[in-house]
Design a protein around this nucleic acid. Sequence first.
DNA 1: CATTCGTGGCC
DNA 2: TGGCCAAGAAT
Length: 294
Amino acid sequence: MTQVWLDEVAHWFAAHRRDLPWRGEPRDPWGVLVSEVMLQQTPVARVLPAYRAWLQRWPTAPDLANDSPGEAVRMWDRLGYPRRALRLHGAAVAVTHRHDGRVPERYEDLVALPGVGDYTASAVLAFAYRHRIPVLDTNVRRVIARVTAGEAAPGTATVARAERQHLGESLPAAPEDAADLSEALMEFGALVCTARSPDCGGCPVAAHCLWLELGRPASETPLPRQAPFAGSDRQVRGVLMAALRDASEPLPLESLAGLWPDGRQSRRALRSLAEDGLLVIERDVASLPGREAH
DNA sequence: CATTCGTGGCC
DNA sequence: TGGCCAAGAAT
């Protein structure tokens, strides 16, 4: 049973849909998976050039699986969260070996892939395979929270289950229409009903929005502040990974540790990167993981 | 359930 | 100017 405000979103989408490269016809499931992993916590504008370069070098999952995880990490460049590159490579290997090189079309098989959680699995099923399945990312959850609950921001995981249920009942019965609406909700949240400055003036759902009717009240429980990046282990890891990406030969641990003033912190970062599989330490040098590395 | 995990642009 | 934020996943 689709609702009026969802129809408005669908109509809005028909006129404002962006022609993003991963939306090309025919849909390429591997391309969709690559885009979804790159888009995890990373803005579309920064993903666009990386996505094109990536698929030009490795058009299919077997292409990527045949190269080394270290090359994936190097190609990832400065997209951030380089463990995603490692996981994407692992997903390519799994797809190649367990699924004959094809991205699986079952939820259980998708979530079993490294780097693929509930959101990404659902997104691949809906956007690539056009299944009728709720796709709940932060955009969609924010839109639902505002329109139906009058809340500024999405709530807990418990709330998310209710939203999935609600959306599952509200999606159109026809899978293709349901997939379109899922895409529309995300696009709408990304372009109109944004987190920081929603365009309620030009919003096609304004007449149906409980949050707007209540006067756009601020969230009762503001999200915890993001930990400062400057001086963090994350920054140190970033410095070390940048050096390894730029190097064609293994780098001495001593020179790597010297890239950060606090020796204890740089050694800790080095160790955590090795635990993550983002680098390999042999004797007194470190390098990106080769083909035989896990 | 709370934390950790990069990077760079924006108001 | 610097805190805030951007299509999450794993632990």
